[in-house]
Amino acid sequence: MEKSLTKSFMNRTTKAQGKRLSIPGLIVMLIGLVFVIVSPMILSNYRLNLVITILRIAYLAQCWNLMSGYCGQFSFGHAAFFGIGAYTSSLLYTELGVSPWFGMFVGMAVAGVVGAIIGVLSFVYNLKGDYFALVTLAFAEILRVITKNTDFLKAAQGVSITFKKNWKVMQFPTKAGFVYFALALLVLITLFLFIIQRTKMGQYFIAIRENEDAARALGINVFKFKMIALILSAMLTAVAGTFYSQYYLHIDPEIVFVSSVSVDAIIPCILGGVGTVFGPIVGAFIIEPVSELTNVYLSGLPGMNMVTYGLILVVVIIALPHGVLGFVDSISKKLGKKATSPKTSGEKEA
């Protein structure tokens, strides 16, 4: 009885999720992939900057997607894990000469531990929704204050890394190196999400998101899977922090531990489609060029670029509550209904 219930639930969710992986969608993704691969040959360094930003933000959004999109644990404090990754690898490198390739993994471990602490505290006390989001925000703020006031962590002035142009210390001589590194990270995490979604664990995540009490009633160890989602997400986010510091070569508490980093992780996901494999990528490919365009064309009046950016954000959230992919989905469903006989297979999933 229990098993069959779980199964029917899982069938329902896979069906709804499976819809997102249509052939046209895959083609669009492949075109995007090819474009990024050839971009170092056709684009100027200035434009490659934008490509790297898109990939970096898409990766960050995928990290958020894992825990908040799939598992429904709404984080507003991903800056905490991002900052931990950035600071761990950078300080290990500048103070002890440890290569960031190794420091990256140390950062993942530290972020995982901090994630575990946040998770145990919040989930034991059964924090949900906005309350959980506020706790994650508070932890990120605490890390900011600690870092800002600790000389050992370089306090407010932050950490600066000298540019050595050596891939052994995660500094690539050309922008192309960074493009491919960021692309590799994004492809890996996307494959990871794609696979996870097809495993039992991924289905448990979705079950928890849809209805935690029902999931518990079905015998799913809700606490365990929420912890797994949070810790995995925290560790992967730390990698984004290491990448940031190696690319921009300077970090300080007001750059990496601020809520705008957490917002960066959320926007592409909501814009593209929460809890979908490709949503965050689509979102990042839309929002970052838009932000760049507003920067370029509205630079005359300081602030006007951000006003436009904010307005676009507000309008999109109102107009496309399920993101671009959700919108495409509903359009294709409507067209499908008109063209073929009504084959009502799936209820609409949020």
Binding site: F74, D130, I270, V274, M304, M306, V314, I317, P321
Partner: peptide, 23 residues
């Protein structure tokens, strides 16, 4: 809408208001 949408919307409003004051 889900609470992350609502939160992001108010965050968006905050960006608009602050920068409008800047302008």
């Amino acid at each position: 809408a889900p609470s992350h949408n609502q939160l992001l919307l108010t965050q968006g409003l905050s960006i608009v208001l602050e920068n409008l004051l800047l302008v």
